[in-house]
């Protein structure tokens, strides 16, 4: 659909794990850096390293996504005694968005300022879309231009998709496989 201002695509399931550092019990960022060759951000933000994306989603709190199915177990071994690791591979419903009007459409739905100067590639917002708590990522530009991802707890997926369609409707929505 050539004239769709916004294209939505449900992301394929991927291994995801929550990492919550035990206060004063080691160096979680150091351990993650050693394992994935990238510094985990200390404030909401997203970096990529060796097949995984590490997003800061709270104080001393990260969401690691991607890689092998054994990601949670690997992190549990890596961070034993330093952080609580929880398997969240089935917990999130992730939608990818792009298109010429994607910022405008998202702005109708989420509460944070989406001006490019305030929310650019690598930024992460823990915010609300409609009544839903979501994680919003601004991804690196791709062949399709600006890209975003938005995650919500799995049980809310239908409500989030409804809200996204309502927000993007005026710009034309294309749902990709």
């Amino acid at each position: 659909m050539a004239d769709a201002g916004v294209t939505l695509r449900r992301a394929e399931a991927r291994p995801m794990a929550g990492v919550a550092a035990f206060a004063g019990a080691g160096d979680v960022q150091g351990a993650l850096a050693q394992a994935f060759g990238v510094a985990a951000p200390a404030r909401p933000g997203r970096v990529e390293g060796q097949g995984v994306a590490i997003s800061c989603v709270g104080a001393g709190h990260w969401l690691v996504a991607g890689g092998e199915a054994g990601l949670p177990a690997r992190l549990r071994t890596l961070l034993d005694g330093q952080a609580a690791v929880t398997d969240q591979s089935d917990m999130w419903d992730v939608t990818c968005l792009h298109g010429s009007s994607v910022r405008e459409a998202l702005a109708r739905c989420v509460q944070v300022d989406l001006h490019p100067s305030r929310f650019g590639a690598g930024d992460v917002a823990l915010t609300r879309a409609g009544h839903l708590d979501v994680i919003l990522w601004c991804m690196a530009d791709g062949a399709v231009g600006e890209r975003f991802e938005i995650a919500v707890w799995r049980s809310y997926a239908g409500s989030l998709h409804h809200a996204l369609h309502a927000a993007a409707g005026a710009f034309g929505v294309h749902v990709a496989d």
């Binding site: 404030r43 909401p44 709270g58 104080a59 509460q111 944070v112 917002a125 823990l126 915010t127 609300r128």
Partner: peptide, 12 residues
């Protein structure tokens, strides 16, 4: 929010 920055009261 010390983690997230400035937000509307609806989030709190």
């Amino acid at each position: 929010c010390p983690v997230c920055g400035e937000r509307g009261s609806e989030e709190f």
